[in-house]
């Protein structure tokens, strides 16, 4: 039963939202490599969505290209999700390890990425009146991924449904806290840097005269 390779398991998990992740857990066929590929795809999907979308719908301010927001929306958000989820699951006595959470969450994102990529492709073929078809794919992908995330979290931690929902909500809160602290740390370091730089400037003026 279920003698699938790691690659085939991705398809199995996506096509079986309710048992797929349990099977994955049972067979221990999660792959970190595939998970990273999916996160990179998420990154490219974010760029494609704002840069390669059909012009009749939307186009971004094209005088500058800043990659930082895309990195934030893909890598940083995903990693913060993984860390926050792991932190929360230890409080709830969940079974997941950081690696497993990473893999399962990444697998759950595939329909979302695919839906939006299909939407981006279709936006070059359809006109404004037919936007509903694009929306269909995008919403479908989003909802599917949502179901998969719940299923993945349920499987990875061996929680009941209610506990999973509570965990997800708490994870989101924890993410906000982590991001807030990150911003705080960054600004603090910035202040320190400015302080050091101004001391350097003052000293350099003193010695020049």
């Amino acid at each position: 039963m279920l003698d699938l390779t790691e690659g085939q398991f991705v398809k199995h998990v996506i096509m079986h939202p309710f048992e797929g992740f349990e099977d994955l857990r049972w067979k221990k066929k999660g792959s970190m490599k595939i998970a990273w590929v999916i996160v990179f795809l998420l990154f490219f999907q974010q760029i494609a969505y704002s840069r390669l979308y059909g012009f009749q719908y939307y186009s971004d301010y094209d005088k500058i290209f800043n990659i930082v927001p895309y990195i934030f929306r893909s890598f940083i958000l995903f990693l913060v999700w993984v860390v926050a989820n792991w932190a929360m699951c230890t409080l709830f006595a969940g079974e997941g390890t950081m690696k497993k959470i990473f893999i399962y969450s990444a697998y759950a994102l595939v329909p979302y990425i695919a839906g939006y990529l299909i939407g981006t492709l279709l936006s070059h073929v359809l006109i404004k009146d037919e936007y509903i078809f694009i929306q269909l794919f995008e919403i479908l992908g989003l909802c599917w991924s949502f179901v998969l995330v719940i299923s993945a979290m349920k499987a990875v931690h061996q929680f009941t449904f209610g506990k999973t929902i509570a965990l997800i909500l708490l994870t989101i809160l924890a993410m906000i806290a982590i991001l807030f602290l990150l911003v705080l740390v960054l600004t603090l370091f910035q202040q320190v840097l400015i302080f050091v730089l101004s001391i350097y400037t003052e000293l350099s003026y003193r010695f020049r005269v």
């Binding site: 012009f55 073929v125 006109i127």
Partner: peptide
């Protein structure tokens, strides 16, 4: 965009 949309429809 509105005009582009119409031109695109014609082109398609």
């Amino acid at each position: 965009r509105g005009r582009y949309n119409k031109a695109f429809e014609g082109y398609r």
